[in-house]
């Protein structure tokens, strides 16, 4: 297809809350810059196309994740809580609590939700492509995904990426 716009091709392969952000931030921004955008969702990334996104964050074995509380006095909020692996692996409900804290912190700081960025990406013309192979393996139906999602496979992505100015695997 003849198109002289810049093109961004992304593979979104991760389905945690933290990793859900980069593909949608870049896709929505590139689309807002008038670029042609295609995001191919595969493996765990496929869950980001579901009508209801249930992405969580799992701090276990991630020593780089800052753990701060988004409430209380400023001094308390500034504390970076040490999270030893023995705790993150064994405390029931830890991932759920960490996810709630991250969502709350993002909202408080003025960060868009994944759902918002996804909608803005679509509205700005980004193509969101679901990996049909992964969908079959995970037992996802196309009706599970939001409207506007296309189906595709490796050849679909490669053909699109071959003409891309920026290609990213996330």
């Amino acid at each position: 297809m003849a198109d002289d716009r810049r093109r961004l091709a992304i593979i979104a392969s991760k389905g945690t809350l933290d990793w859900a952000y980069p593909p949608f931030i870049l896709a929505s921004t590139a689309a807002a810059m008038g670029w042609e955008v295609g995001v191919f969702f595969t493996f765990y990334g496929l869950t980001l196309l579901k009508k209801k996104i249930t992405a969580k964050v799992a701090p276990h074995a991630n020593p780089a994740m800052p753990m701060k509380m988004p409430f209380g006095p400023q001094g308390f909020q500034n504390i970076e809580w040490p999270m030893p692996n023995i705790l993150t692996a064994n405390l029931p409900g830890f991932d759920h609590a960490a996810t709630a804290l991250m969502r709350r912190t993002f909202k408080k700081k003025g960060v868009a939700t994944i759902e918002e960025l996804r909608q803005l990406s679509l509205e700005a013309g980004a193509r969101l492509i679901s990996c049909q192979m992964t969908a079959e393996v995970f037992g996802f139906r196309h009706e599970d995904f939001i409207d506007g999602v296309e189906k595709g496979g490796a050849a679909t992505f490669l053909e699109f990426a071959a003409e891309a100015d920026v290609s990213l695997f996330i």
């Binding site: 929505s28 921004t29 807002a32 700081k109 003025g110 960060v111 868009a112 960025l117 803005l120 700005a124």
Partner: peptide, 14 residues
């Protein structure tokens, strides 16, 4: 005001 990346750009575009 109070919004972080990429919202100012996206809203400006809209």
């Amino acid at each position: 005001q109070g919004l972080l990346c990429p919202l100012p750009v996206l809203k400006t575009k809209q």
